[in-house]
Design a protein around this nucleic acid. Structure first.
Lengths: 106, 106
DNA sequence: TCCATTTATCAAAATTAATTGATCAACCTC
DNA sequence: GAGGTTGATCAATTAATTTTGATAAATGGA
C-alpha cells in the first residue's frame, strides 16, 4: 500500500496536462509524422499515408493521439481531412533548438 | 504489408534519439520525480521515496528510466545514491517556459 | 562477525498501448 | 441512385510497460 500522492497543488495541476503531450511525442512513428507535417503546410491523410509508409487505419490512430494532445490541427473539406502542425503548441513545449527539427528552416 | 520506412536520413537519425527522452517524460510519476528533483539539489532514494509517496522498488524502476534517458544524474556515496536533475539536458529538450517547471525559479 | 540499512534487480502479474483487417459513414461524380 | 473514394472507428490480437513483492549486493555500525 502506498501513501497518498504528494500534495504540491501546483505540480499536480500542471504535470497532468504535460503527460499527455509527452506521451504523444514518445513514439517514433508519431515523431516521423510531425517531422513530415513540418515540411508541408496541410496534408491529407492519404498523402501522409504514402509519405510515411503507414496504412490508413494505423495512421488515423496516431493522428488522433497527436490531435488529442493538441500538437496538430485538423481541417475538413468534404471527404478529405487536412492535418497541419500546431506550431504554437510545439514551440511552447520544446526548446528552440528542438523546435527547428519540427519547423520549416526558413 | 507496409511499404518500407520513409527515407529522410536526417529525420531517421535525429528522431530515434528523442523517442527515448520523450518516453521518459511521458509518465506522470516520472514528471513528479523530475519536478521534485528540481526543488532540491541532490536527493537520495529513500528521501525521494517519502516525498513522492512511492515504494522503493517502483521508484528505482522509474529512476533508471530517467537515468538511461540522461535526464537525471546519479552520484553514489557508500550505500546511498543521490540523484539530481540534468539541467543541461532538460534545457536542451524543453522550451524555456516549460523548463521553469523543472528548474529552480531563482 | 552479525545485524540493520540502502538501493538495485528479478520474475510474475497487471495494466496499457499498438497493430490489424474489417466495417461504416460521409461525400462526390456519373 | 450506384459505385468509388476518403477517413474514422471497432474488436481482436499482439506487444510493451508498469507494478508488486521478494531477494540480493553493498555498506556501515555495534
Amino acid at each position: 500500500m502506498e501513501t497518498p500522492l504528494p500534495v504540491d497543488q501546483h505540480s499536480a495541476v500542471d504535470i497532468e496536462g504535460f503527460e499527455g503531450k509527452f506521451k504523444a511525442l514518445a513514439d517514433q512513428k508519431r515523431l516521423q509524422i510531425l517531422f513530415e507535417l513540418c515540411r508541408r503546410e496541410e496534408v491529407c491523410v492519404c498523402e501522409l499515408s504514402d509519405r510515411v509508409g503507414m496504412q490508413q487505419s494505423k495512421l488515423s490512430y496516431h493522428l488522433k493521439i497527436l490531435l488529442d494532445a493538441n500538437l496538430i490541427l485538423k481541417k475538413t473539406k468534404g471527404t478529405w481531412s487536412y492535418y497541419s502542425l500546431n506550431h504554437e503548441e510545439m514551440n511552447h513545449l520544446l526548446s528552440p533548438s528542438l523546435c527547428c527539427l519540427f519547423r520549416d528552416q526558413s
